[in-house]
Design a binder for these strands. Structure first.
Length: 897
RNA sequence: GGGUUCGUGGUCUAGCCGGUUAUGACGCGGCCCUUACAAGGCCGAGGUCGGCGGUUCGAAACCGCCCGAACCCA
């Protein structure tokens, strides 16, 4: 029978059908079995309990990408929360979204099928996208399930689904009706390869090798009207923009060229006359100090265009092709035009020099194509007017870690553009808008009719309400993906238009605001900010209560993983090598917010912990072989517990309490370390060794109860971090019927014990172990007599049991030894404020022995200083000359005889 | 170039409002097979807390500058 064959566990739990735990834990067999069963049995189903719900706004991953370490990390963190909250008594709503909407999936489809979106109708192409995405989605589901993420698979959504399209279009209409959206012809950042507008945040830097060209411009008229100078030189990396040149700029501090300002110049080859103006945005460092402004070469050009009210000359179209403004170069690509123009400039004698130059260009992050700046008609969400409100909304959220709010704040404060939400792509959610062909009036869809695709569907009116014209043109654009992804809290809550009452409502209002938004710090400006904007505008409140912001996963050398660097580690490689529980154990060590290095040996440490848990469980099981597990149904009164057992249960109470707080504050690393230390040192090394001895001579009900209570509790405390091994043990040893992950989180039972005496006893045990080790004795060597000077309460039996001591005597007073004062420890937090700059002199006095203790007072340096007893502590050194050997610990003195 | 965050033994990390002897784990060295576990137990070595300067009786912690890294933005 295999270990994972659970059919043998069908008899009643009280019967303890335990075939004993086999020698080794076999995660390779155990983990997939449980993953499958949890899904099949819907262990994580949301029950719809309105009073105790806890909702998590999970990030929908782009399905076109493989699962990477960032997913593994982020999902696992969410899962710690979900599993803890579920056991702690909440009804957890843990959904999953697939982001298959937008440019990423569109480009994936084109690549996968070797097609171009332009060759199909929008609906046809979208069909193909769905087909391609479906396989990737299935793969993603498998991957996420293999990480044991406790998602409720009945609550999933796709961002391209009709329902989400409807939500997204409703959002558009609502903002439009509120007057928060506008359509404007304005300079836009444009990707010629994807042929779409993109937002500011979708572009990134790329350093490129290019030529810096010095070109002569003919001076038509100088600003001072006097100069006899005939030409001047400008430097440019983009001579193909000469036909789009609308002015030349001089820096106000540029004395050498000041006389040109106010004049006009003639652009070589193309002949247009342009004004020479002054502006401090000219970069004096590079080139000649004279710079041409074209519509548009970069963002500064746009600023100049707006600030100086310049002409508009469009020389490059949407596909990166030269327009008729470029005369004979019309129809050439920008690259070809650049080459041809340089050649012609050279021939005509305008080109003075062309030299190598490295500079930074803006590219589209998805395809690395250099962006252009075009004037196009786009939809914008107005955000600049409400910065303060979005900041306040951010302040209402509890940030973990708190410091991440700063990034949000700075992002908002630095905003300069409204949010451009239209994209000229096919795979996406269409704008539900038509335009009157006569007066351009925008006609929006009826809410009841959503989702609509204006290319395929008819507008809701027969005639333009403004001018009466009856022909309409569809809006062909689709939404920016963030315009949809920013609605996840509303998608989860089932936000929709209720036609009966004529308002927007939520199907599950109890989920909103979501209790938790988990995400990486790299998308604070995308996902988090946009979600706040959208949801705040729709509902008037922040969309989540807590946010946890995690860092990036780095490689073993603390460098960011990237495909180009080749230091990319795929989760599948890790999973093949290590148990999932071990990877989760590693994940739990991350300090939330900090970047998180991959560590092979952290995974090995996880593996060892699993083995330790398994072995300890096996011992507990053996020691309680004949004990009916139903004794756990009732709590055992203190009076029926031996001191040592009561001590351990009291310590367990403490741990439960602090651990609960750790989990509640998302402090997984601390929870993990605290629990590991308590389990490994206190339970395994200390208590279990004692219990072993106590039970060696036959049953002891108090100890048996304590062992089982503790072990059962440990499984629950470990469950959020190590779901597989704990479930396997729980089902085998306690309850084969019900999942551990639906059990109640442990509560302190309220046991009282002499914790100080327990602590001292453990110190004494440690001292005796050290004694045996140093004497070269086996740990089970019998010791005849041990005297303990110190308070060990009722624990001396435990000490004698575990250390095999025949006779123990305990004393509350000091042993008969010679003591002398070896040092004085000062409490500087008291001495410092009191004595200030004299502290140095006091230290010197102690150092040189110029002190005297009398009663409770310490006199220093011939009575120059007097310290009260709470300000100092006397360190003594003891010499023992009696029979046996003395061992000192912090709280006790032990003599082995 | 600007902003945010981080920088602690070989590696990863704890260390709230400043209190002098800096936590734990991994790795390393030594000893021990004690009837769950040698993937274990015990002991030990190893750090001028990135650098410089400042505030203070006292700084890993507070301030300034510099260096390095991650992310965001130009």
């Amino acid at each position: 029978m295999s270990e994972t064959d659970h059919s043998s566990n069908e008899e009643s739990p009280a019967n303890n059908d335990r075939d004993g735990l086999s020698g080794e834990y076999d995660p390779e067999a155990v983990e997939p079995t449980w993953q499958q069963r949890w899904v099949d049995e819907e262990t994580y189903a949301y029950q719809g309990d309105l009073d105790t719900q806890y909702s998590i706004d999970t990030p929908p991953p782009t399905v076109s990408g493989d699962l990477h370490m960032g997913h593994l990390y982020g999902l696992t963190l969410m899962d710690f929360v979900a599993r803890f909250k579920r056991m702690y008594g909440d009804d957890v709503y843990f959904p999953f979204g697939y982001d298959d909407n937008g440019i990423a999936s569109e480009r994936l489809t084109e690549r996968e099928l070797g097609i171009n979106h332009g060759d199909f109708t929008r609906r046809e192409f979208q069909e193909k996208c769905r087909d391609v995405c479906q396989d990737y989605e299935a793969e993603f589901t498998d991957d996420v399930q293999s990480l044991a993420i406790s998602i409720d698979w009945e609550n999933t959504y796709k961002t391209i689904s009709p329902q989400v399209q409807r939500t997204s279009q409703l959002s558009f209409l609502d903002l439009y009706d509120q007057g928060r959206e506008y359509r404007q012809r304005a300079p836009t950042i444009w990707c010629p390869d994807c042929e779409t507008a993109i937002s500011q945040v979708e572009q990134e830097d790329l350093t490129k090798q290019t030529k810096f060209n010095d070109i002569d411009f003919e001076l038509v008229e100088a600003g001072d009207g006097e100069t006899t100078q005939e030409t001047f030189t400008i430097s440019t990396t983009r001579p193909e923009l000469l036909p789009a040149c609308v002015s030349v700029f001089v820096h106000p501090d540029d004395d050498a060229n000041q006389h040109l300002v106010g004049g006009t110049a003639r652009v070589p080859l193309f002949g247009q006359e342009v004004p020479i103006l002054e502006d401090d945005r000219v970069d004096l460092e590079t080139g000649s100090g004279l710079v041409m402004c074209c519509t548009f070469g970069d963002q500064t050009d746009i600023e100049w265009y707006q600030a100086h009210d310049l002409d508009l000359r469009i020389a490059i179209d949407e596909s990166g092709t030269m327009t008729d403004l470029a005369d004979e170069y019309e129809g050439l690509s920008t690259a070809d035009a650049r080459a041809a123009i340089i050649e012609d400039l050279d021939e005509a004698g305008y080109l003075l020099e062309s030299r190598d130059h490295e500079h930074t260009v803006q590219v589209h992050e998805r395809c690395d194509e250099e962006v252009e700046y075009l004037v196009t008609e786009q939809w914008y969400v107005e955000i600049l007017d409400k910065k303060d409100e979005y900041l306040d909304a951010g302040r209402e959220i509890d940030w973990h870690p708190e410091k991440m709010f700063t990034r949000y704040k700075h992002w908002i404060e630095g905003l300069e553009w409204d949010w451009c939400i239209s994209r000229q792509r096919d795979s996406g959610i269409p704008f539900p808008v038509w335009y009157c062909q006569e007066c351009d009036e925008a006609i929006t869809a009826d809410r009841e009719a959503l989702p609509v695709d204006p290319i395929e569907d008819e507008p809701p009116v027969d005639a333009c309400p403004d001018c009466g014209h009856d022909e309409f043109a569809p809006d062909k654009d689709v939404f920016d993906t963030w315009a949809t992804s920013s609605l996840t809290p509303l998608v989860n809550a089932g936000w929709d238009w209720d036609a009966d009452v004529g308002e927007l409502r939520m199907e599950q209002p109890e989920l909103y605001p979501m209790n938790l938004r988990p995400q990486g710090h790299d998308i604070i400006s995308f996902w988090l900010f946009h979600t706040v904007v959208k949801c705040y505008e729709h509902t008037g409140e922040a969309p989540f209560e807590d946010v946890i912001i995690h860092g990036m996963v780095l490689d073993e050398n603390r460098e960011a993983m990237s495909k180009s660097k080749g230091n990319f580690i795929a989760p599948s490689e890790v999973i093949d090598e290590y148990p999932i529980d071990a990877t989760r154990y590693w994940t739990a060590s991350a300090s939330i917010g900090d970047d998180f290095p991959y560590r092979e040996n952290a995974l090995e440490a996880g593996e060892r912990l699993l083995q330790k848990l398994w072995n300890a469980s096996r011992l507990v099981d053996q020691l309680t072989e004949d004990v009916d597990r139903s004794i756990l149904d009732e709590e055992r009164p203190e009076s029926e517990l031996a001191d040592i057992d009561r001590w351990f249960l009291a310590r367990l109470d403490e741990t439960i309490e602090s651990l609960t707080e750790r989990f509640d504050n998302y402090e997984f690393a601390k929870a993990r370390d605290d629990l590991r230390t308590f389990f490994w040192s206190t339970f395994c090394d200390d208590y279990l060794e004692i219990a072993k001895q106590r039970l060696s001579g036959g049953g002891d009900e108090s100890t048996e109860y304590t062992l089982l209570r503790a072990h059962n509790t440990f499984l629950k405390l470990w469950a959020p971090l190590l779901p597989h091994v704990t479930e396997e043990l729980y089902q085998r040893l306690y309850d084969p019927e019900e999942s551990l992950h639906r059990q109640a989180w442990p509560e302190p039972a309220g046991y009282d014990a002499d914790l100080a005496a327990g602590e001292t006893a453990m110190e004494v045990i440690g001292a005796l172990r050290r004694y045996k080790t140093e004497e070269g004795l086996p740990l089970n060597e019998r010791l005849e007599a041990v005297d303990i000077y110190g308070h060990v309460g009722g624990f001396s039996d435990a000490i004698s049991d575990v250390m095999h001591v025949t006779r123990i005597e305990t004393f509350d007073d000091e042993p008969e030894v010679t003591t002398e004062i070896s040092d004085i420890d000062l409490d500087y937090s008291l001495v410092g404020p009191e004595f200030g700059s004299d502290v140095g002199a006091i230290d010197d006095a102690i150092e040189s022995g110029e002190f005297e203790v009398s009663g409770d007072t310490l006199y220093l340096a011939d009575g120059q200083f007097e310290l009260d007893d709470e300000m100092f502590e006397i360190e003594k050194s003891r010499t023992y000359s009696g029979e046996g050997q003395m061992i000192e610990t912090e709280r006790a003195v032990v003599i082995v005889r």
